[in-house]
C-alpha cells in the first residue's frame, strides 16, 4: 500500500508537529529549546530519507557498484546540523543569562517580574 511505503513521512510529520507543539505550548524556556530541537531534527530526517535510493549503497567508489544513495541531502543536513547546534548553544546561553537576570526560566514568572519592575 502506498501509505505504508511513505511511513518515513508520517514519522517526520509526527515529530515535526510534536516539536512545534512543545515550542508553542511550553512555558519553560529550556523545554522550548528541546521542542525546537525535535522540530529541527524532524526536518533533518525528511532530507535524509529523501536521499535514500532503493537498494542503493553508501556513496563510496566501489568496483562494479552503480546504485548508491544520493549524498547531497546528507551534506546539506550536515550543514543544517551545525546551524542547529549553534542555535541551541546560543539559545541555552540566553537562558542562562535570563536565569541570572530574573532568577527563573518560566515565561509567566518572567512576565510578572517585568510588570513589577
Amino acid at each position: 500500500m502506498d501509505w505504508i511505503g511513505q511511513y518515513n513521512y508520517y514519522v517526520v510529520f509526527f515529530l515535526m508537529m510534536t516539536g512545534f507543539y512543545v515550542v508553542v505550548a511550553q512555558g519553560n524556556l529550556v523545554k522550548k529549546i528541546v521542542g525546537l530541537n525535535i522540530f529541527q531534527s524532524s526536518v533533518f530526517l525528511l532530507y535524509i530519507s529523501m536521499g535514500k535510493v532503493q537498494d542503493g549503497t553508501a556513496p563510496i567508489l566501489l568496483d562494479g557498484e552503480a546504485v548508491y544513495s544520493n549524498p547531497l541531502p546528507h551534506v546539506l543536513i550536515l550543514t543544517a546540523i551545525v546551524v542547529g547546534v549553534a542555535t541551541t548553544a546560543l539559545g541555552l546561553a540566553l537562558v542562562v543569562r535570563i536565569k541570572e537576570a530574573y532568577g527563573t526560566v518560566e515565561e509567566d514568572e518572567i512576565r510578572e517580574r517585568d510588570d513589577d519592575a
Binding site: 515550542v23 524556556l29 522550548k32 525546537l36 542555535t87 546560543l90 539559545g91 540566553l94 537562558v95 543569562r97 535570563i98 537576570a101 530574573y102 518572567i110 517585568d114
Partner: peptide
Amino acid sequence: RRALTAAYQYLI
C-alpha cells in the same frame, strides 16, 4: 534585561 527575553523570543 528585557533585551535577553526579546532576543530569546526572536531566536525561537
